Simulated scan of single mutants.
Amino acid sequence: MFIRPYIPAKTQPVRDLTSPLLVCRATQMSPSATKILPVVAGSQLTVEWHHYNDQDSDNVISPSHRGPCLVYMAPLESNGQGYSWFKIYEQGYDATKNMWCTDVVREAHGKLTVTIPTEINNGDYLLRTEIIALHNAKVVGGAQLFPNCVQITVTGATFGSPELHPIPGIYNSTDPGILFNIYKEGGATYEIPGPPVYPPPAQ
């Protein structure tokens, strides 16, 4: 209902970091193809991933497909084009628990909760969620990216001016977080790709 229609093969990743599919993995990029979900700035929004169906019993993603989760936002009027994106969330590897974000999502039956920043402008946005599976990422072109986009309208925000980035354009094929041997290097050395999270975490 609020999700941009994605490619028919739900489990098909994006490997080409220059592909238009990297924006939302969408077959229909028209804003009118999707309704808009009202969200209050500072509130939490739960997104879901599923492997084959949309039930809690689904295994969400293969346990071999381990890697980070990232969430970006862009003004809806941009339709995700050009320098319009800023990152609001990232989670990679937790050494204390020996868990990647994908492990956390699997344990939560596909759910991940993020907070909508208050330091932005009110208005309509694309919210882009992404999992990067690293099981084949030891070779160039091996990382598997699974982006999807939700349309939201934000109220109750204060003024903000995050630095904007293009998608495609935020990742290069040789970035440490894209070209990574998960079996040899281990999660403790992993660098999450892309720009820093906005707003910056409190020191």
Results as ranks from 00 to 15, higher is better:
163 E>F: 01
127 L>H: 03
125 Y>Q: 02
124 D>M: 06
147 P>A: 03
89 Y>A: 07
167 I>Y: 00
155 T>F: 05
102 T>A: 02
109 H>V: 08
141 G>R: 13
136 N>H: 14
112 L>H: 06
127 L>V: 10
128 R>I: 04
167 I>P: 01
129 T>H: 04
144 Q>R: 12
137 A>D: 13
114 V>I: 13
92 G>W: 08
164 L>T: 09
135 H>Y: 11
135 H>Q: 15
95 A>Q: 12
170 I>S: 02
161 S>R: 09
168 P>K: 12
108 A>Q: 13
123 G>H: 06
100 W>T: 08
115 T>V: 10
135 H>W: 12
171 Y>D: 06
99 M>H: 12
90 E>D: 01
120 I>N: 03
130 E>A: 15
119 E>D: 03
119 E>S: 03
130 E>S: 11
125 Y>P: 03
135 H>K: 15
104 V>Y: 03
159 F>Q: 08
137 A>E: 06
91 Q>G: 03
109 H>F: 14
169 G>W: 05
152 I>F: 01
133 A>N: 04
100 W>H: 10
142 G>V: 15
109 H>N: 14
166 P>G: 06
88 I>C: 02
147 P>D: 06
101 C>H: 09
106 R>N: 06
134 L>Y: 12
167 I>T: 06
108 A>K: 14
168 P>T: 12
124 D>I: 05
160 G>Y: 00
141 G>C: 14
95 A>E: 12
146 F>V: 04
162 P>N: 02
141 G>P: 13
93 Y>D: 00
153 T>S: 10
166 P>A: 07
108 A>R: 12
142 G>Y: 13
127 L>E: 02
91 Q>S: 10
